[in-house]
Nucleic acid binder design. Structure first.
Lengths: 226, 226
DNA sequence: ACAAAAGTGTTTTCTCTACACCCATGA
DNA sequence: TCATGGGTGTAGAGAAAACACTTTTGT
C-alpha cells in the first residue's frame, strides 16, 4: 500500500478521432479548442478520465456530449505519453477512433462546440500531436476494414454495393474494380440482399443489402490487403 | 489552466510482456509479485511511470532493471483502465510487449526478483488482468511476425532456417512446410547466407544466415497470414 | 544401411486482377 | 440512342500449399 503512495499521478485524457462518411468522402469531426493553450485552434474532441470510469467510458461520454450519440463503434488506438506533448501541463492521452453515421448525429450538439467535418485529405493544422493520432487511427481503420466489414458502422443500415465500394475507396484512398469488389464482398457471405432497389444513383437501380445480423461481430478473411 | 485543475489524477503503470525463445518454445518471463495485494502470485513485470519519462521510457527502465538489457524491441499493446482492475487502488496500466534473446539476459538481475521463464501454453494463474494482457500481446506479436521478420530479436545474431522455422511454429502454434517456409523467407531477400554451417542440429549441417543490416527496419510483404 | 534434416523442384490449387460483355433505364 | 452503373463470366498472372526427390552425414 505504502508502495503506491510514492509515485506521481497524472491527468489522463481521451482524444477521439471521429470518422464519418458523406458525399463520397471520409471525414473527420474537428473542434476549435475551447481553452488555453492553443484556444481556437483545431483539435480532436477530448476529455479527462474521471474517477469512476474507464477510458472507454470516458470516450463514450465525450462522444455522447459532442455528437449526441450512444452505441458508437470505438477502438483504442494508442496511448501518448511524452512528457512534453502538451506544453502547459503533463497529460497522458489515450486515443480512440470512432465510426459514426453522419446522418444520425445531432448537429445541435456539435454546433455548441463549433464542430466541423473535414475531409481526411484536406485537414487543417492541428494542435499538439493530434495529427499523429489521426495518422495512426486511419491505419487502424484500414486494418479493421481489411479484416471485417465496416459498412454498417459508417453507412445507413441498408446500402448498395456501389455505396460500400465508394466507402472502401475513401478509406483506402484508391479505387477498386467494381466487378471484383462485388464478388469479393458477396463471397464473404455476410450480407443479405433485400428485395428493393435504390434507383437514385443509377438508371437500372441497385439492390440494397444489409449486414446479416449474426455476422456483425465475426472476424472475416481478408477483404483488402494492407 | 484552471480547467486542468479540477480533474482527477491517476497512477499510471507499465506492464511488460517479455517474450523469449528457448528449446523450441516461446516463453514468457514472469515474477512473483513483491508486495501486497496478491504478494507472491505470478505477475508481469511492471512499474510506475515517473514525472519526466514517457511510458516507453518507463517500460525500458523496467526491462533494464529486471533483465539487465538495453536496446530491447518494444511495442505498445493496449492501455487498461477499468476502475476496478486492481482492487486496492486505481491504476491505469499501459501494456508493452518485449522481445529478448534469452541467452543474453542477466540471470542475476532476474533472480533478485525470483523471475522464471514459462512456456506460453503452460502459464500459471496470473494476477489481475495480466492474462488478458498476454493474450493481446501474443496476437500483436503474431501480426508483427507476419509482416516483418522477428528472427533477429528472438534468436542469436546468426541462425539456421530450421531455427527460424521452429521459432515461427512456436509463435503461431502450428507447423510450416519446411520447403515452402525456406522459399518464402529467402524470397523476401532480407537474409545474408554466411559461409559456415551449424552441424549440431542435423547430420548434413545447415548454413547460418543473418539479417541484412539495412533490412532490419523494413516492413515486408506478408510472411504468414494471420 | 538408415534416419533425419538440408535443400531443390514440380504440380495443383486458389486468389487476385484485368477486362469483356450483356442488362436496364433515365435523359 | 446513348451513357451509366448493375451485374456476370472468363482468362492469365502469381502466390500458397502439398509433396516428391536428391544430398549429406552421424550413428
Amino acid at each position: 500500500m505504502e508502495f503506491y503512495k510514492q509515485h506521481p499521478r497524472f491527468l489522463v485524457a481521451v482524444d477521439c478521432v471521429v470518422f464519418g462518411y458523406e458525399e463520397g468522402e471520409l471525414k473527420l469531426l474537428l473542434y476549435p479548442r475551447a481553452f488555453e493553450p492553443e484556444k481556437g485552434n483545431w483539435s480532436l474532441m477530448g476529455g479527462f478520465v474521471q474517477e469512476n470510469e474507464s477510458s472507454e467510458q470516458a470516450a463514450c461520454r465525450v462522444l455522447k456530449q459532442t455528437t449526441g450519440l450512444n452505441d458508437i463503434f470505438l477502438e483504442q488506438v494508442n496511448a501518448f505519453s511524452e512528457p512534453a506533448r502538451e506544453p502547459s501541463e503533463r497529460v497522458i492521452s489515450i486515443t480512440y477512433y470512432a465510426l459514426i453515421k453522419i446522418g444520425r448525429y445531432k448537429k445541435s450538439k456539435a454546433d455548441e462546440f463549433g464542430a466541423k467535418w473535414w475531409p481526411v485529405n484536406e485537414l487543417p493544422p492541428l494542435i499538439f500531436d493530434h495529427s499523429e493520432m489521426i495518422q495512426q487511427s486511419l491505419k487502424k481503420l484500414q486494418q479493421k476494414a481489411g479484416s471485417s466489414l465496416v459498412g454498417s458502422e459508417l453507412l445507413a443500415s441498408k446500402f448498395t454495393l456501389l455505396q460500400l465500394r465508394k466507402l472502401y475507396e475513401a478509406i483506402y484512398q484508391r479505387s477498386f474494380d467494381p466487378g471484383n469488389f462485388r464478388k469479393k464482398i458477396l463471397s464473404l457471405d455476410v450480407l443479405d440482399k433485400l428485395d428493393h432497389k435504390n434507383s437514385t444513383e443509377s438508371k437500372k437501380g441497385a439492390y440494397y443489402y444489409k449486414v446479416k445480423p449474426n455476422k456483425l461481430e465475426k472476424e472475416l478473411e481478408r477483404i483488402v490487403k494492407y
